[in-house]
């Protein structure tokens, strides 16, 4: 009986593995067979070898950029939760302003990257952290606010029948209801923060930042190094996303999303 669940887990991971193997195999094969210009799309084997040989440059660069992303993620998400809590307290204001916030989310923040560079010295990490923070702020705020507003009337009525105070209603009903929404937003924000940091570095950043490294490599046509850098960026983004998913599974065990995974 103990063997069955283990087999279930392995079988669950099988399809992604198969796809991965197939895609990589196909990629390698096609590039070789079609003699695709190496400078555009190198073979996976080349990328992996550069990934390894350049690791003393790439991995610290990745870590530097990751710290920018993480800082922005923390600041932006934290501010988003606080703002949502404040706006959530004033129900009518919250519901009236919601469309405005959602529309504000439609503004391409990335266009402000150079301005942030001008504000916070383009070389310093703060400018990238600012971009990441602003990118994270709105999705987190909008989703958390929606979560706080989505407590079902029946549940709130029940609490009132227990003569619960507003604070208790918050703690026992609204906050737990909002948590799954918060985690959905955090998943999105985790990916956005990394992207924000790297795009921000396009407009200027320290020499040892990952985005700058990728960019310079691309400009001097060292595409295999650029792809290896992209691999690093992607892995870090996935790692952050994975960390959020893990936290979700631990903290929000009852939600359908956590149960599904």
């Amino acid at each position: 009986m103990t063997l069955r669940p283990r087999i279930g887990v392995v079988v669950g991971w099988l399809p992604p593995f198969v796809v991965f193997a197939l895609v990589v195999g196909l990629w390698e094969g096609l590039v070789r067979a079609l003699h695709v210009q190496q400078f555009l799309l190198p073979k996976p084997s080349t990328i992996i070898s550069v990934f390894w040989t350049q690791r003393h440059v790439l991995w610290p660069a990745g870590w530097y950029t990751f710290k920018e992303a993480l800082g922005g993620f923390a600041i932006g998400s934290g501010a988003g939760v606080v703002a949502a809590t404040v706006v959530g307290r004033f129900r009518t204001a919250g519901q009236a302003l919601m469309p405005i916030f959602i529309a504000a989310n439609a503004v391409p923040i990335i266009a402000f990257a150079p301005i942030f560079g001008a504000w916070f010295n383009p070389i310093q990490p703060q400018s990238k952290m600012a971009i990441a923070a602003v990118l994270c702020f709105l999705p987190v705020m909008v989703n958390t606010l929606r979560g706080l507003q989505s407590a079902r009337p029946r549940q709130v009525e029940l609490m009132r029948s227990y003569a619960a105070s507003e604070l208790e209603i918050w703690r026992r009903v609204r906050v737990p209801t909002a948590l799954p929404f918060l985690f959905t937003a955090l998943k999105v924000a985790s990916v956005l923060s990394m992207i924000g940091a790297i795009v921000g570095e396009y407009f200027g950043g320290a020499m040892n930042a990952l985005g700058v490294t990728i960019n310079t490599d691309a400009q001097i046509f060292q595409f295999d190094a650029a792809w290896a850098g992209i691999l690093v960026a992607s892995l870090l983004g996935i790692a952050l996303y994975g960390a959020v998913v893990l936290a979700e599974r631990l903290i929000v065990r009852w939600s359908p999303e956590a149960r599904a995974s």
Partner: peptide, 18 residues
């Protein structure tokens, strides 16, 4: 089951870089 993780992963590739 096979493709979803990669579809999610595709968004972590910094588009500006490629």
């Amino acid at each position: 089951r096979g493709f979803l993780p990669y579809i999610v992963g595709s968004q972590t590739v910094p588009i500006l870089a490629i």
